[in-house]
């Protein structure tokens, strides 16, 4: 594996004093196979090989790096798999087992396609700061490209079918990595977490599900995948929900700056 120095999603983007990165994740399954947890080893291998074939026929000319690095995880070393987890290119769950699994990664690390994670395909695009339009457009293009070869499991009533029924519908989750030291120091973070629950948002740690918050970083994602279109969900998340948390964090920082500037001098916060 050879990546560029750092993922482009670590660049400066809109609202990046608070929002480190934005991520769109899309789950898809192939219609002709059981989901990963009920698939045989042979079927898992077939899914990997069909995906690799479909990806090779996919038009990636609009992609920033124009090529994806393919990694068969059952042949990757522990160190390589750890690197992929650390760079948010695969999940810890995906790295843990040695069954037939793979990942395709854009050289600038802004996109990855996990094969045989919880679903057959888990496609994600990461961008710097708070910006979803470009990420959503890229993920949609690759998804449509794969669809010219692969038939997705879909039901008119439920939408895209996923192994976990809480992802059914669009199969899409929008999430942001937020740096919230102001809300943490002022202990307002608990209020944010309570409001997030009412708004059907999940608040997690730096490495997503099951992880603790590290370095005041929180991953916030939408939980609704059914009953609204992708555009509606994206607009709600990007234009209504996240800006409120961004404002709240900025207010907390300003308040701390007035009341306790010494505390801030020992904390890396930009106001």
């Amino acid at each position: 594996m050879a990546f560029e120095d750092l993922g482009t999603w670590l660049d400066v983007g809109p609202d990046s004093d608070v929002v480190v990165s934005s991520r769109v994740r899309m789950a898809r399954n192939m219609a002709c196979f059981p989901f990963v947890n009920r698939a045989t080893q042979g079927q898992c291998q077939e899914i990997v090989s069909l995906t690799r074939q479909a990806l090779s026929e996919c038009d990636l000319s609009n992609e920033p790096t124009n090529e994806m690095i393919w990694v068969d995880l059952d042949q990757a070393s522990d160190r390589e798999r750890m690197l992929l987890v650390e760079r948010h290119l695969i999940s810890r769950h995906h790295a843990e087992t040695r069954a037939s699994k793979a990942v395709a990664v854009a050289r600038d690390e802004s996109m990855s396609l996990m094969v045989n994670e919880e679903d057959h395909l888990r496609l994600q695009v990461l961008t710097a700061g708070l910006q979803f339009e470009q990420a959503f457009s890229r993920i949609s293009q690759v998804e449509k490209g794969l669809e010219s070869t692969l038939e997705y499991a879909f039901s008119p009533r439920w939408g895209y079918l996923t192994a976990c029924p809480t992802n059914v519908g669009t199969g899409i989750r929008f999430s942001v990595m937020m740096h919230l030291p102001g809300l943490l120091i002022t202990r307002e973070i608990e209020r944010v977490k309570r409001s997030a629950k009412d708004l059907h948002l999940a608040v997690r740690g730096y490495y997503g599900e099951g992880s603790e918050s590290t370095g005041d970083l929180f991953q916030i994602s939408n939980q609704i995948t059914l009953g609204q279109s992708e555009d509606e969900l994206m607009a709600e998340f990007q234009q209504r929900i996240i800006p409120r948390i961004v404002d709240y964090e900025r207010q907390a920082r300003q308040m701390l700056l007035k009341k306790n500037p010494l505390l801030l001098s020992s904390t890396k916060i930009s106001c």
Binding site: Y152, T170, H200, G227
Partner: peptide, 13 residues
């Protein structure tokens, strides 16, 4: 889990 929704209204293959 989906705030009362039980029909897909998003994109289709």
């Amino acid at each position: 889990a989906q705030n009362g929704a039980c029909h897909h209204t998003g994109s289709i293959p």
